[in-house]
């Protein structure tokens, strides 16, 4: 019985969301606000128990786990306060007078992520990709790939006028770019249609039992 009730609620909400395609209406607005409210509540709880509780509350206020002294029970309890305070400083931007203090936290956050990301990104997205495109011109596929790569790179080379050989290569680059955009658009359509299929399947299968 509970399954039927929950499935019916899901179906009504699905239809409410899609009713927007006809025109904006109170059913759509209700569903929209429900999603926003539930998501905010869900993520608040998840983030509290995954970020704040284990990283700040537990290390500071718990005394020990098993035989291990932690938090106020150890001499290093104050270390956990540092990221907590840095996190709180981010909220100073709500007070224009003290907003600049939040930049310290932001600076550490951005610097840390940049440091962690720079080397792997260079390795994974630049060096490995260059290596993967250094191919022998022994097959049509490889020739196609190299021509496409050179053409596209040439199109984004703005230090010289696109005339002569450079112009031809840039035009070839445009063709490859257009094919790339077309493929991306096709995949996007496929993705959106998949979501519609998922919802219609839910309505026809789980709710109405027609399939």
């Amino acid at each position: 019985m509970a399954t039927i009730i929950w499935t019916t609620i899901g179906a009504i909400l699905t239809l409410s969301v899609y009713s927007f395609l006809y025109k904006d209406n109170p059913f759509y607005k209700f569903a929209e606000h429900l999603v926003v409210g539930i998501s905010a509540g869900y993520y608040l709880v998840i983030y509290y128990f995954n970020f704040i509780q284990p990283n700040v509350v537990a290390p500071v206020f718990l005394l020990r786990i098993g035989n291990e002294a932690i938090g106020l029970g150890s001499s290093m309890w104050w270390l956990a306060l540092i990221p907590g305070i840095l996190g709180l400083l981010l909220y100073t931007r709500f007070f224009p007078k003290f907003g600049w203090v939040g930049r310290w936290s932001l600076g550490i956050y951005v610097g840390g992520y940049a440091g962690l990301g720079l080397s792997p990104i260079m390795q994974a997205r630049v060096l490995n990709q260059i290596g993967a495109n250094a191919l022998p011109l022994t097959s049509i596929t490889n020739v196609f790939l190299i021509v496409g790569l050179l053409g596209t790179l040439t199109y984004f080379f703005f230090s010289m006028k696109h005339k002569g050989v450079l112009g031809v290569l840039a035009r070839v680059g445009i063709v490859f770019l257009m094919v790339g955009f077309g493929a991306s658009f096709g995949y996007t359509v496929m993705s959106r249609v998949s979501l519609l299929i998922g919802r219609v399947s839910f309505l026809l299968h789980d709710w109405l039992h027609l399939i």
Binding site: A124, N128, Q129, G131, A132, G180, A183, S184, Y187, T188, M190, S191, S194, I197
Partner: peptide, 25 residues
């Protein structure tokens, strides 16, 4: 997802990904 798939095919070609399932297909 299909939206993301075109971004990751180069990783398959370079061998960084063993394979790729793109979207519903």
């Amino acid at each position: 997802t299909a939206v993301g798939a075109p971004n990751f095919y180069p990783y398959v070609q370079s061998g960084q990904l063993t394979g790729l399932l793109g979207g519903l297909k």
